[in-house]
């Protein structure tokens, strides 16, 4: 039996006296696309940030490819080479062009020379359909374009796992589609993705697993058809019905 790419075991995290994650366990295999859903404040983003150690955990265990993630002697910068992240607010480097955003990591972290990094960077921009905007600054791009550059920037590090923290939440509704489409392409290419998102369209069509998180614990975990059609827990059902109601009014 092969070991999972990502395994999270009995993860606890508190901010002060408030426990945000109360013993979360999760496994992902290579090529899995796991979508985390749950009410705001349920700990989805915190869980994501524990995986690349933007947030330090209190107890539990996270392993990537069998390597301990949370140990004191783990080099976080080495870890982050393997785990890319896409942010809700894009966080593109404001003083760099789209291409420079994508090549900064390869140049400074992976030590690629400028010409190779640029050639690779152009490929990644092409992959998200933004080759023509290579020389534009973030302020000159639309929200959807910014997020696609954000995805290209994460891809440029050639990570084993991509984390998406509500990648479409800050977008105008008409711009969501282009980002979801890029994410779906990545899923089809077999890239392992852990996604916090309420984008049901993406969850239904691209996810291999849906995880419903509430109050810091995993309430339900299953393939999308099962979890969306026949949720076993009441809390899941309530959350989904509220989500549907919102989707219909929006």
């Amino acid at each position: 039996m092969t070991q999972p790419l990502l395994s999270i075991d009995d993860l606890h995290k508190s901010y002060g006296s408030e426990e945000v994650l109360e013993g979360v366990g999760l496994e992902m295999d290579q090529g899995d696309v796991t979508v985390l859903i749950g009410p705001s404040g349920s700990g989805k983003s915190t869980l994501l940030r524990c995986v690349n150690r933007l947030t330090e955990i209190n107890s539990g265990r996270i392993a990537l490819d069998g390597q301990d993630v949370t140990g004191a002697e783990t080099d976080v910068n080495e870890l982050r080479k393997q785990v890319g992240m896409v942010f809700q607010d894009f966080n593109l480097f404001a003083h760099l062009t789209a291409l420079e955003n994508v090549t900064l990591g390869p140049k400074k972290v992976l030590g690629m020379d400028a010409a190779d990094a640029e050639a690779a960077g152009r490929n990644h921009l092409e992959q998200v359909g933004l080759l023509e905007q290579a020389d534009s600054y973030p302020a000159e791009l639309s929200g959807g374009q910014k997020q696609r550059v954000g995805i290209a920037r994460a891809l440029a590090m050639d990570p084993e796992l991509l984390l998406f923290d509500e990648p479409t939440s800050a977008l105008d509704p008409e711009l969501v589609g282009e980002v979801v489409e890029v994410m779906r392409d990545l899923a089809d290419e077999g890239i392992t993705m852990l996604v916090v998102s309420h984008e049901m369209d993406f969850a239904r069509s691209a996810a291999s697993d849906i995880v419903f998180l509430d109050d810091g614990e995993i309430v339900e975990h299953g393939p999308p058809e099962q979890l969306f059609q026949n949720p076993t827990a009441d809390r899941t059902e309530q959350f989904l019905s509220r989500l549907h109601a919102h989707e219909e009014t929006a």
Binding site: L54, R80, G84, F87, K108
Partner: peptide
Amino acid sequence: QLTAARAIGL
């Protein structure tokens, strides 16, 4: 900005 820089391994 710094968070994103850290996230790519800087």
